[in-house]
Amino acid sequence: MAVPPNAPDADLVAAVVAAGDRRAFGALVVRHQQAVRALLLRLTRHSTLADDLAQETFLKAWTRIGSFRADGSFKAWLCAIAYSEFLMGARKARASQRLADGRAAEPGETSTPPGPGGERVDLDRALAELGEEERTCVVLCYASGLSHSEAAQVTGLPVGTVKSHVSRGRAKLKLWFERKEAA
């Protein structure tokens, strides 16, 4: 019997694992594509690149879905794959940039911003002020809505470190917005 597309994640995952149910996987893609794409968009600040990485994320999820443990959140599991794809992509990009002997691009200068709108640009500029791990933890917790422990699973960092990154990142963002208002 086919699993309805509105079934819980666990049921859809079980159908994919048991029978390679492509419709069930399609329902998971429909359900989580926005979260994955939004996460990667915030991390890469490049919409086309974010969508490419999101596709790779779901393809990896298809091949590795047997390793998903039902006691965790499927969204957090997907975010972990997405973050891993982002890191691999960033490493490759850094390597090719070194090979090309190009100068390091300022964040947001060469990338396409997510879209028009002052708040979006402000947020991206503010996020660019954070360190990579701080930005990742802030994005995971505030944009993707993950808990500190889920963000720790995604990044492989201890929960305490995630909390510190979120706290420091949050403080930097607050300062950035305060300075902007004062200016």
Partner: peptide, 22 residues
């Protein structure tokens, strides 16, 4: 701010592309 920063809209073509590459 994160909510207003408009997460990418649901894109049926994205799903189609993923399913085509499985």
């Amino acid at each position: 701010l994160f909510d207003d920063a408009a997460p990418p809209a649901h894109d049926p073509e994205f799903t189609d592309r993923v399913m085509a590459r499985l």
